[in-house]
Amino acid sequence: MHLRLEQRIFLRSLYWQTSWNFARMQCLGLAYAIYPLLEKLYGKNSEHLAQRTRRYLVCFNTNPYLAAAILGFLVHMESQGEEMGDQGLALSGSLAGLYGALGDAFFWNGLKPMVSALAVMIFFWRPSLWALVFLLCAYNLVHFGVRYTVYLHGLHRGIGVIETINSWNLPLLRNVMEFVTTASLAVTAFLLVDYFALRGSVTSVAPFLLLLALIGWLGWRRKNLGGDRPRLLEILPVGGFVVLVCLIFF
């Protein structure tokens, strides 16, 4: 396959979730990304091209970054003929579930919190635009690196991309990132003491006491009231707003 076509399909995958919807989720993104290949293969017969494109309008949802691996795999299969393309499409549903879980855990629960926590730590250490630069550079270095590598592996090795991703041991990397996140959160809590001028015998432990109280409250809430969503995030601003209004009127 031409390099230019490969790049074009990858660039189109950056718009993977542009039309995300509750009905079939990322199906249009998949069809849009793979369309240049279909056009090249079946472009001479527009009816056949339309029929092949419609085959890709199936319900599809996965992590938008690791979707590049599935896209590469589908391009690999479709290039080998319609029958192989259909087999690839049938298998892509299972891959979507697998990479959805793996990608969400690695990127949303691992990389994003780690980079955000480090960026916030940089801000509270030396408030400057370097925190922004760090956030963008560190995240995208990993994100684009993984995204493009898995795409190329899917494209050239087909189903072999599973071995590639397995060999990276993403769950282990995620655990390591969680430790880095926690350590940087501890440093941030420490830096908050200076930033908010709380240094003193009692006040310097205030952020830590506050953290313990909040974590305890979240735990109590989950145990006694159920539900996984941390309602604290909604109660705090609304509660704070009410307190503000009370301060004004009483």
């Binding site: 926690t182 941030t188 908010f196």
Partner: peptide, 13 residues
Amino acid sequence: LLFPAAGIASLLY
């Protein structure tokens, strides 16, 4: 301080 502290608490939790 409440906002970064609440963010840290919910992440740790």
